[in-house]
Design a binder for these strands. Structure first.
Lengths: 185, 185
DNA sequence: AAAAGCACAGTCCACTGTGTCATGTCGACA
DNA sequence: TGTCGACATGACACAGTGGACTGTGCTTTT
């Protein structure tokens, strides 16, 4: 019971230490001031395919960034529109975040869960689920290819788009081999 | 201001209405009673590659399932081990969940975020990040192939494993084409 | 045999992420 | 005039993540 083996240092880093969502908001604000509403749409368009974010979250993060002085609120517009702009601290924090090694990906695919417990499920129903998902992936792939054909604004957008295409191709290839795996006698 | 166009029905479904994480716990409990600790490890082994769950979450869901009567706590063991077993209601709820159409997947890949803002990042550093991730994906693919070679307990496990392999192959193919996309003049 | 270390087993908390309900504003247009 | 739809935000409950913390019992080291 003597001495507690912890000093409670609590190194909060004080600066930076952004989560990826907050960081991406700062990223978008480099293009000029924007409201939460606008940022939601920008984000969904530009990174929505591999980084989901919701209205609630955007407003919450903006408020937090404001409290930390990384963005500042401008004069409110009509319809209670509240624009924010990047501060110098925000710019610095974004730069620091961007230079840090990104973490590994997270995938959560409910279809795979259902499939994993597939022995307890009617075979036709399972196959139906897979067929439904197949059309979703086909549509997404078609959409990506269209986007690519239409031309990307820059190399980096093209690079992330290429990921989407490879991913969807992989999923479709998997679905093609699924019947053989499941039907084996 | 006249009549509000909503009846506030609040159809809570009363039964079932499980989240996928809770459902998978019920799924594992079909094999016999288990403690939270054991379930964490079972889950990480069997579905961890496409459905992440944490200690905190497992214990919280177990408590919730207990409150709802879908599992019941058995006599505590040594080290305050608390085993749970499936109730009939739990079995029914699991069956109902399994027969529902699974939702679409969620992917969150921080590397793609960094890449999307890549114009603001030193080229060598970005390439370094990609190289680091490449080795991760190579190792995962190798691990999956090994698992497959070692033989799967059942077709369904094999099917989910096949997904992992296709996915990792897709990511590696993407990484192979990345330099060409980014280097273009 | 005492000490140390480790796997087992669980709690608590802060933060992040998702989805729904609710509220109010402004312009178009019928 | 009214009502519809896009604009704009807030509140809240639930789900998910990760770290700090507390204890217990077995095994290995000294």
């Amino acid at each position: 019971m003597a001495h507690r083996p912890q000093w409670n240092v609590k190194r909060k880093n004080l600066m930076a230490d952004l989560n990826p969502t907050a960081a991406s908001l700062l990223g978008f604000l480099h293009a000029g001031e924007a409201s939460g509403y606008e940022l939601v749409h920008t984000a969904q368009q530009l990174i929505g395919d591999f980084w989901s974010l919701t209205r609630s979250q955007v407003y919450r993060e903006l408020a937090a960034l404001d409290r930390r002085g990384l963005v500042e609120a401008g004069p409110a517009g009509p319809r209670s529109r509240q624009p924010y702009r990047l501060t110098d601290e925000g710019r610095a924090a974004f730069g620091a975040w961007l230079a840090e090694p990104p973490g590994t990906e997270q995938i959560r695919y409910p279809l795979l869960l259902t499939l994993a417990f597939g022995s307890a499920l009617d075979r036709d129903r399972l196959m139906g689920f897979i067929a439904e998902h197949r059309t979703v992936h086909e549509k997404r792939l078609a959409g990506y290819r269209e986007q690519r054909a239409a031309g990307c604004p820059d190399r980096f957008t093209e690079a992330t788009l290429a990921f989407g295409i490879r991913y969807e191709e992989g999923v479709l290839a998997w679905m093609d081999e699924l019947p053989a795996i499941l039907e084996e006698r």
